[in-house]
Amino acid sequence: MNRKVVIIIDGQKITAREGEKLLWVALENKVYIPHLCAVKEQERPTAGCRLCFVEIEGTCNPVTACTQPVKAGMTVKTRTPAVDRLVRTAFELLLSEHRLNCGECPKNGSCELQKIARERGLKLNLHRLKPLSKKVIIDDSPRSFAFDAGRCVLCGRCVWADHRIAGVGAIGFSRRGIHRRITTFADRELAQSPCTECGLCVEACPVGALYFKKN
């Protein structure tokens, strides 16, 4: 597991521990791969955001970097036409679920979606898809933060923070398909859940769905 191996990412020679996930190796070596749902400590990545696609020499289709263990002699390309196409579509699908009003968003400027768009030259609007009309439902019952479900891209980082870092278990995924969302038990307000307002889920949110109140 700890054997050091040499791999090549975009022509750059990189030394990494065998078995480590490719996404984190690349990021540590300043090779940017878009990612939303990945959590380094997670043993079995959800691989749900479909943004971290890369092409590995010898495999016929692009693979998700967050699930790909590093092997000796791997040659990886982070930008190929096939990868770009997959990422572009995945990104647009995510945007169709995300209420776009960056001007009013507390995360404007530090938003992960904005970063991905900047890095990959993608536009922050919809071309082929219509926005999923989501009613604006904001839960501002906690004292220090609020949750705007319309901005949530369902990456699950907050659930990880809540369950595994904070060890609270106040929020989680419910329902499925197009109705999937982050809720508390029985869709209660956050203030009526076991939430301790530790703020770890807010820090984990890559977009402006969970945000600290201004005052």
Binding site: H163, V168, G169, A170, I171, G172, F173, S174, R175, R176, T183, T184, F185, A186, S193, P194
Partner: peptide, 22 residues
Amino acid sequence: AMEKVAEALGIPTVDVYGAATF
């Protein structure tokens, strides 16, 4: 019932709710 099951299995109530709505 969901609260009771969560308590007994030692998992957060929201996880039971997630499975029940899924």
